Simulated scan of single mutants.
Amino acid sequence: MGELLGVAVLGAGHMGTDHIRRLDRVISGARVAAVADPDRGRAEEAAAGLAGVSVHTDPVAALDAPGVAAVLIASPGPAHEEALLAAFARRLPVLCEKPMAPDSTGALRVVEAEVALGRRLAQIGFMRRYDGEYRRLKALLDGGRLGRPLMLHCTHRNVSSPGHFTSAMLIDSSVSHEIDAARWLLGQELTAVTVLRPTPSADAPEGLLDPQFVLLETAAGALVDVEVFVNCGFGYQVRCEAVCERGSARIGDEHTMVVTTRDGAREEVAQDHLVRFADAYDREVQTWVDATRRGEVTGPSAWDGYAASVVAEAGVRSLRTGARVAVGLAGRPDLYARVSR
């Protein structure tokens, strides 16, 4: 396989720092070659103790740094399109955290740029496809033992939302994971979105419409409902139940430590996505590194990133109007005809 894959990590915030740790301490076959963040001090702190790492405030400079052969984009969403296009121009394979771009217009530009290259370079970070429970559910549904899937019931809860979180971000940041998971689990495109708004929780920040109830329709007539509640106060919970013609299957029930004392039993509840999906992130990045070293690109594609963006935008319109909003996708290019693994 040759020498270690040199990776430029763009973004040294919460997610980027965790990926730097992962590449350095968990993943085999790769090393961090460069780190970029507009806050140089933050980039230097994230890269501290790593040998042979260059630090940059300009992400493009990081792409051109010595030893860089691949890119991991963990910067805020508005910076993704420019970074992806710069990586494409250098023929660098990319793992890009979602959202691929902040809107569907930008996402389509990314798709068109990759199609113009005539080959895939981008994998989009929908890490639930790498979670053990989600993978078992996917295999069960694909095997057909339960018959045709009729409905998915999904739950997405966070302890609290960041101060900058908006009502629209419950859809395009949080529910975007369920959007991709539903497309992947069912093997169907989503065709319409309806968002219902219950009375906001008293614990939600002023003006934030939290929780929300999202209803997704698929091309083959299945329904997907998502309860998204980002200020539930008690833990990070992600669950999914598939209801099929001949049975159902549920994932996401906590299988964590139970501590028993004379005061009773207490079950631990994950407090954030980096805890709940730690194994999925590890498997995602390891799979990306292995494929990149083989000269391959697997996993969620730029088309998957575009489709999720279009559905999320329809959801935001429904949130604002209360109406059912149809989803309109561009024609799917031949480059993405093969199902993403």
Rank of each mutant, 00 (worst) to 15 (best):
M1A: 09
M1G: 11
V7Y: 09
A8P: 13
A8G: 13
L10S: 10
A12R: 01
A12P: 09
A12W: 12
H14L: 12
M15E: 06
G16S: 00
T17W: 09
D18L: 04
D18H: 01
H19N: 07
H19Q: 07
I20D: 14
R25K: 08
G29I: 03
A33T: 04
R40T: 08
R42N: 10
A46R: 02
G52Q: 01
A69W: 06
V71F: 04
I73G: 07
P76T: 02
P76S: 03
G77R: 06
G77W: 02
P78S: 01
P78K: 01
E81D: 03
E81C: 07
A83W: 05
L85H: 01
A87M: 07
R90I: 10
L92E: 12
V94T: 08
C96G: 05
C96L: 07
E97F: 00
P99N: 06
A101W: 03
S104L: 06
R109I: 00
R109C: 01
A113V: 07
V115I: 05
L117R: 08
A122K: 02
A122N: 05
I124F: 04
I124E: 04
F126T: 02
F126D: 02
M127Y: 14
M127N: 11
R128D: 03
G132V: 13
R136M: 14
A139G: 14
L140E: 15
G143P: 11
G144S: 12
L146I: 11
L146K: 14
G147C: 13
L152P: 14
L152I: 04
H153Y: 04
H156C: 10
R157Q: 12
V159W: 12
M169N: 07
M169Q: 14
L170K: 09
I171G: 03
V175T: 11
H177C: 04
A182M: 05
L185Q: 07
Q188K: 08
L190M: 10
L190W: 09
T191A: 08
T194C: 15
V195S: 14
P200I: 00
P205D: 01
L208I: 00
L215S: 15
L216W: 09
T218S: 09
G221L: 10
A222C: 08
A222G: 08
D225I: 00
D225C: 06
V226N: 10
V228Q: 15
F229G: 01
F229H: 10
V230G: 07
V230I: 11
N231K: 02
G233M: 02
G233Q: 01
Y236L: 10
V243D: 08
E245S: 13
S248C: 11
I251S: 10
G252F: 08
E254C: 13
V258A: 14
G264I: 14
Q271G: 13
A278G: 12
Y281E: 06
D282T: 06
T292K: 11
T292N: 10
E296M: 10
E296R: 12
G299I: 00
S301K: 00
A302N: 05
D304E: 11
D304T: 04
E313I: 00
E313S: 01
V316R: 00
G322L: 11
A323D: 15
A326E: 15
A330T: 07
G331R: 14
P333C: 12
V339I: 09
S340I: 02
S340T: 07
